[in-house]
Design a protein around this nucleic acid. Sequence first.
RNA 1: GGCCCCGUCGUCUAGCCAGGUCCAGGACACCAGGUUUUCAUCCUGGUAACACGGGUUCGAAUCCCGUCGGGGUCACCA
Length: 600
Amino acid sequence: MHDRPVITRFAPSPTGHLHIGGARTALFCWAFARRHAGRFLLRIEDTDQARSSEDAARGILEDLAWLGIGWDDGPLWVDGPSDPNVCSGGQAVGSSRRPAQYGGDARGVGPYYQSQRRDIYEREFVRLLEAGLAYPAFETPEELGAMRKAAEAEKKTFIYRQRGDYDHAAALARVRRGEAHVLRLKMPGQAITVHDRVLGDVTFPAEELDDFVIRKADGFPTYHFAVVVDDELMGVTHVLRGQEHLNNTPRHIALQRALGFRTPFYAHMPLIFNLDATKMSKRDKDKAAKKAVRDAGIESVAGLVERLHSTGRQRERAVLQSLSDADLQVWLKDKQRQLGREQVGAVAAALGLKLPEIDVEDFRAAGYLPEVLCNFIALLGWNPGERNADGTDLERFDQAFLASRFDTDRIGKTNSKFDREKLLAFNADTIQHGLTDERFAGLWLGWAERFDEQLATWARADAARWQVASRAARPRTKTLSDAREAIGFALVPDDAVVFDDKAVGKVLHKGEPSGLVVLEGAGKVLASVDPWAPEAIDAALHAFATDRGLGMGKVAQPLRVAVTGGSVSPGLGETLALIGREGTLRRVERCLMECRGSVI
RNA sequence: GGCCCCGUCGUCUAGCCAGGUCCAGGACACCAGGUUUUCAUCCUGGUAACACGGGUUCGAAUCCCGUCGGGGUCACCA
C-alpha cells in the first residue's frame, strides 16, 4: 500500500451548491494529490434518490472548475468556466484561456456517479451475505423508532444488534419471498482503532459500534457501503475529510475488513464555523433576508419591487414578481420556511443587503477572486509554517505553492471560524497589488457579464472607457461587486446627478474665493483641454490651480461635487474622463445653476 | 446523556512532537499618528492570548493528570 500511487478523492452529494467547507476539503484533497504526484478523483455520491439532482451535480463541477481545482478522474468537464478571464490555479489552463477540461476515465474505474454503480454494489452485497458477514433485517422504520425510544427511556444509546434468535437460512428465505428488508453488517465485536494522520490513534470500543445498515430497503447502498466499495475499486489511498466523519471511520474499517479491502490512510480535518460560532449554513442567507424585510417593514411584493426599481435590475425584478403576497407573508411568519436561492438574492438586491456568503457561488457573485478564496480557505486548518524575508509569516500563496508544500502533517486539530474581514483584506490586496489594470479590467468584465448586465453593457459600449474605469476603480476596490460603486457616477445620466447638501455647503459655498467661483473658472479651462484624457485633464487643472495660487484641494473638490454630486470619487482626471467632456461641462453648468439659484 | 475530538491575542495562526533563546512571533480587525486633491492605498507606533488547577522538572505555552469550556456524532442523509 505504501508504494501505491497516491489517489485522493472528493465525493460530494449533489444536493445543493458547493459549500465553502466542501471547497476546502476538495482543495486539500487536490493539493495532497499534487504534492505527491498522484491523482485527484471526483465522485458524485447520489445514493439518496430523493435529494440528489443532476443540476446540483453540474453546479458543483462548475464551482470546482472556477476555483481551479481540477480533477483527474471523474465526470467529464469540457465546457470550461463561462467566465473567459477566470483565473485558474493548479493545473492551470494558462493565459490562453482555453476551456478547461477535467475528468474522464483514464484508469477505467468509473462510472463516477454512484447511482450508475449499483451492479457493482450488488456483487459485494452477495459476497458478504454468502460469507455470513452481513444479514437481512426486517424491522420497519417505525419499529426501529420505537426501539430507539425505549432505549432512550432507559437513558441508553440505541445500538442495533443482531437478534439472539437470528436464523440466517430463515432470513434468506424471507428475502426470497420478497419481504421488505435492509442489509446490515455484522460487526466483529472488537474495538477498532483509527490511525489518523491528523488526530493520531483513536479507538472506538466495540460496545459503541452497531450493526449498521449497508443496503437500504430501496436497494441502494448506504453512504458507508458505497464509499468503502468505491474507494477500494477506484484505488483511493488517502481519505481527507471533515472531522464530522471521524465517528464513521470505524464502521468503514470494519466494512473493509469484511470485504477483504485495504484500509486507506485517513486524515480528519477540523471544521469551519461562522464568526459567531454557528454552523455555516445555507439558511443563514434566508435568515438575513427575512430579518431585513421585517426590519424594513415591507409586507408586500410590490413594496420590494418598488425598492428595486431605483437600481434598475430586471432579473431580480422578474424573480420577485414571481412571488405572491401570500407567499411572502407565509415566509415572513414562518421561521422554517425558506425562499429559493434566486428569490433570496433578489430580496437582498432590493434592500441593498449583503447576504452572508456560504456557498462558493456566493463568494463568486460577491466578487471574490478564486485564487484568493483558495488561499484563504487553505489557511483555515493548514499553515505552511514558513516565513517571508521580512520575518512575517508566509500566508499569501497561490495554488502552485499549495501543490508543492501541502501535506497532512501541518493540518491543525482545532476548528476555526470564518473571518470574512480577513478574506476581504486578502481579496483587496490581490486586486490592488497583484493584478495589472488590464487583468483587472478583464476579470471585472467577466464578473459583470455574469452578475451585472447593466454594467456589462456599459463596458462593452466603449472599450477605451472601460480601461479608464478599471484604472479608476481598481485601487478602491475590495471585491469585484463593489468596484461599480467607485465609478457609479459615470453610469448616471448627466441631469440626474443629485447634489449632496452637505458637500455643496462645504465645498461650493464656503471659501475665498468660493467653490462656485473656482468651479466656474475650472469649467472654462476644461472646455479646451485636449485630448480629453486623465493625464491631460489633471495637467490642465494643476496649471489652473497654480495659476490662481490655489491648493489642488480647492480646485478638485468643487469639481468633484459638481460632476458626481458628492465629495468622494477616483482621481479627478479619471473621474472627468469617464464622464466625458460634454457630460462634464453639462454637469458643471447644471451645478452652477442649481447652487447659485438656491444660495444658502 | 453515551462515545469521540479539541482548547495560544476579538479572529486565523507560529511556537508544542525533540521543555530553556517566548514576560509568546505574524496576519486580519481595532486604536493613535503621518503621506495624499476626496476616497482608497501606503508608512510608523500601540492595545491584545498560552482556559483553570495540580503534578514532573533547576526550568513548562511546550510532558502527565484532573476540572471546566467548545465541537462532532449517535438515520434505511451524506
